[in-house]
C-alpha cells in the first residue's frame, strides 16, 4: 500500500493525464454487446495483428485497446481492477507484484513453459532484448561499439560529438526503464560507470522507447541505451539510419507478460484471449507478427532473460527503490 502511495506520488504528473491514454483504439464491431478492455504498454501498431486475428474468430466481440506507460498501468489497474479484462505490460516486476498481490485470475491448464509463467496467472509471450541503438551517421568511420565497455570508450573518446546527444530511460518514470536499470546494476558495475559517463554528457531522459527512436531517427540523439530492439526493428522507415546493437558482454532480455484481471468484467472472454495470445506467440510462425515470440533458445543458460520470479519485487520495496534512485540520480544527474 505504502509502495503504491509512493509510486502514485512519484508519478503524479503522469497520473494527472491518466485518462488521456497514449493511444486508444476500438477493434471489431463497435456495436457488439461485449467489449473486452485491454490495458497495455505495447504500441497499438505492434499489437493490432494479435487482436485482429482474435476478432476474426470472434465476430460478436469488440476490443478496446488502451495504451499507457508501464508505471501508469500499475497504478491505474490497481485502482480499478474491475475496469479491465486483460493487463499487458513489459515491466515484469510490476506485473509480478500485481499478481503477487492477488489482482490476477489464475487460468487452468494452460500449456506454457514453467519459466514463462507465474502462479498460472502471469504469462510471458514475447522475448525482447534491451539494445543499444545508434544513429549510423554519428559513427561514420568509427568502430561500432559491441559492448557497454566499448560504448563507454566511444563516448569518452568524442565527448563533443555526444554531449546532449545520448538518451536513456528516465527510470523514475518508466517501469520498464527501472526494470532494465536494476537488472543491469545487478549484473555488472559497468552499468554505473556507463551512467556516470552518460550523465557527464548531459543525457536526455525519456519515458518510452518510441520517443527515443523518434529522436534517434531525426538525429536529435546519436546513441540510446536500453531501448527495446523490437521497437526499433519494427520501424521500417528508419532501418537505414539506425543500427541495433545487442551488447555482447551481458544481454538483458525482457519478457512481455499478460494476465487476466481477477475482477475482469468478462473473465471467460479474457481467459480465451490470453490463451489465444499465448498460443499465437508460442507457435512456430510467431515471426509473422511484429512482436518476437518467446523462444526456448533465447532462454539459454546465459541467463540473458530476466527470470520471472518474485525476487523482481525486491527493487519495488520503497526503501530499496529510494536507495537505488538516489544512486541513479547521483550518477546521471550531475549538477
Amino acid at each position: 500500500m505504502r509502495t503504491t502511495l509512493v509510486l502514485i506520488f512519484l508519478l503524479l504528473p503522469v497520473l494527472a493525464l491518466a485518462q488521456d491514454w497514449e493511444d486508444r483504439r476500438v477493434f471489431g464491431n463497435p456495436e457488439a454487446e461485449t467489449q473486452l478492455r485491454i490495458i497495455s504498454s505495447t504500441d497499438t501498431s505492434l499489437f493490432a495483428p494479435v487482436i485482429e486475428r482474435y476478432l476474426g474468430d470472434n465476430t460478436d466481440l469488440s476490443v478496446e485497446y488502451l495504451v499507457t506507460g508501464t508505471s501508469d498501468i500499475y497504478t491505474i489497474f490497481r485502482e480499478n481492477p474491475e475496469a479491465f479484462d486483460v493487463v499487458i505490460s513489459s515491466a515484469m516486476d510490476l506485473q509480478i507484484k500485481i499478481a503477487n498481490d492477488g489482482f490476477a485470475r489464475p487460468l487452468s491448464n494452460v500449456s506454457h513453459p514453467e519459466w514463462a509463467q507465474w502462479r498460472s496467472s502471469l504469462f510471458a509471450f514475447t522475448s525482447e532484448p534491451a539494445a543499444i541503438v545508434i544513429n549510423r551517421a554519428a559513427f561514420a568511420g568509427q568502430a561500432i561499439p559491441g559492448t557497454r565497455q566499448e560504448l563507454i570508450e566511444a563516448l569518452r573518446a568524442r565527448p563533443e560529438m555526444f554531449r546532449g546527444r545520448v538518451g536513456t530511460y528516465d527510470v523514475r518514470q518508466s517501469g520498464l526503464g527501472y526494470l532494465f536499470a536494476t537488472q543491469d546494476a545487478r549484473a555488472s558495475e559497468t552499468y554505473w560507470r556507463l551512467m556516470e559517463v552518460m550523465g557527464a554528457l548531459d543525457v536526455r531522459l525519456y519515458c518510452c522507447s518510441g520517443d527515443m527512436i523518434d529522436d534517434l531517427s531525426d538525429g536529435t540523439i546519436a546513441v540510446a541505451y536500453n531501448v527495446l530492439g523490437s521497437y526499433a526493428t519494427a520501424r521500417v522507415d528508419s532501418r537505414e539510419t539506425l543500427q541495433i546493437i545487442l551488447p555482447s558482454d551481458f544481454p538483458t532480455t525482457m519478457m512481455r507478460t499478460a494476465m487476466v484481471s481477477r475482477a475482469a468484467p468478462h473473465p471467460e472472454r479474457a481467459d480465451a484471449f490470453v490463451r489465444h495470445l499465448i498460443a499465437l506467440q508460442s507457435s512456430a510462425d510467431g515471426g509473422v507478427l511484429p512482436l518476437p515470440p518467446i523462444d526456448a533458445q533465447v532462454n539459454d543458460p546465459d541467463g540473458a532473460t530476466i527470470v520471472l520470479e518474485p525476487a523482481l519485487m525486491t527493487f519495488l520495496d520503497a526503501l530499496t527503490r529510494k536507495k537505488f534512485l538516489a544512486e541513479w540520480e547521483d550518477a546521471v544527474i550531475q549538477k
Binding site: D101, L312, L319, T320, K323
Partner: peptide, 23 residues
C-alpha cells in the same frame, strides 16, 4: 534507516508452486 533488500533474499523464496511473498 536505509534498507537495500538483497536480490537473493526474495530469490531464495522462489518455489515450484510460485508462492506469494509479502514483507
Amino acid at each position: 534507516v536505509e534498507v537495500d533488500i538483497p536480490y537473493a533474499a526474495f530469490s531464495m523464496l522462489g518455489t515450484a508452486s510460485d508462492d506469494r511473498i509479502f514483507h
